[in-house]
Computed example of a mutant assay.
Amino acid sequence: MTTQAHDNPIKLCREEPAFAVRLARDLLGVPIPAHSEVHAYSESGTDSEVRDLNADNVVLCREGEENRFGIIVEVQRGKDERKRFSWPAYQVNIRHRLTAPVALIVVCQQPAVAAWAAEAIELGHPGFTFRPLVLGPRNYPKLTEPSGSGELAEEMVLGTLIHEHAEEIEQLFAAVNAELALVPPEKAKRYTEYMLGQLSEQPRRILEALMEQDTYPYQSELLAEREARGRAEGEANALLIIIESRGLSLSDDERRRIETCQDLNELNSWLKLAATAPSVKAIIG
């Protein structure tokens, strides 16, 4: 099962498939053939002859109807020897499906994990050695200057996640905040949520403190939305405590409706009914 911390870097590639191309070409020096389009592609590397194989993210570079190059992006947060078998399988099977060259990139936050992921994988056949391309704290650039156009938003967001323990983290946050101010507000808020959802406690507090300065409009909007969500979650939890303490029967659908409600007025009205209503249905309708 994947976690939010695992998925957030992958969301950048899913939202902006060309980001994977930039990682491969600009940061790792992979020669990417000329192409006119970049598309998200199925992460499944499954063929009928093998068991399910699902990479984290795959993008496809195309020129007209021709598949030119595939890029697999994996996020690895810890050492897992099973990956030394699945990574070559992803590359071979997706290459077979695309009938085009395919590169595999592994993104790591921990230097020790990055060093492990970069080790050669001997496949048994003479001369057939698989070497993942790895991005980690030692080779991912620290982008402390905004581009002025928003074009480095994905690179800078990923950089804060990879370098969250770097001495320059405040500079990285200041730069990414300025960069996100240049992209559409909804995208800026999503990317900020990705960072807040993945960062460990200390760097997250630094980012939150910078956001509270309200330097950019999207930050104040996001803080207000997060505060409203927090209040709604608190009201929903209080309502569930009352329902459970009264011993009222609560179905999964009713619990889900309460937990996902973001309307504070509705939650308040439910709370007023909760003390005396004979059933959950009488509370939420």
Rank of each mutant, 00 (worst) to 15 (best):
M1I: 03
P9W: 13
K11T: 15
R14I: 11
E16Y: 13
E16N: 12
A20G: 10
A20H: 09
V21E: 07
V21K: 08
R22H: 11
A24V: 07
G29Y: 09
V30L: 09
P33V: 12
A34Y: 11
H35K: 11
H39A: 10
A40K: 14
A40F: 14
S42N: 12
S44E: 11
S44I: 09
G45H: 10
E49I: 14
D52S: 15
V59F: 03
G64L: 07
N67W: 11
I72C: 06
E74Y: 07
V75I: 14
Q76K: 08
R77V: 06
D80W: 13
E81I: 15
E81A: 14
R82P: 14
F85M: 12
F85K: 15
S86K: 14
S86N: 13
W87G: 12
W87A: 12
A89Q: 15
V92L: 12
N93E: 08
V102A: 05
A103D: 04
V107R: 06
A112D: 13
W116C: 10
E119T: 08
E122H: 14
E122W: 14
G124Q: 05
P126T: 05
G127T: 00
P132K: 01
L133A: 02
V134R: 02
V134L: 02
R138A: 11
Y140Q: 08
K142Y: 07
T144R: 11
T144E: 15
A153W: 12
M156Y: 09
V157W: 04
V157G: 05
L161C: 03
I162F: 03
E170D: 09
F173D: 02
A174Q: 13
A175E: 12
N177L: 13
E186H: 07
E186V: 06
K187A: 13
K189Y: 05
Y194T: 05
M195Q: 08
D214I: 03
Y218H: 09
L223A: 09
L223V: 02
E225H: 05
A228C: 00
R231V: 02
R231M: 02
A232I: 01
E235T: 01
A236Q: 00
A238S: 02
A238C: 00
L240Y: 05
I241S: 07
I242G: 05
I243M: 08
L250G: 12
D252F: 09
D253L: 06
R255K: 06
R256G: 03
R256K: 04
R257N: 01
R257M: 05
I258T: 02
L264R: 04
L271I: 01
L271S: 03
K272H: 00
A275H: 03
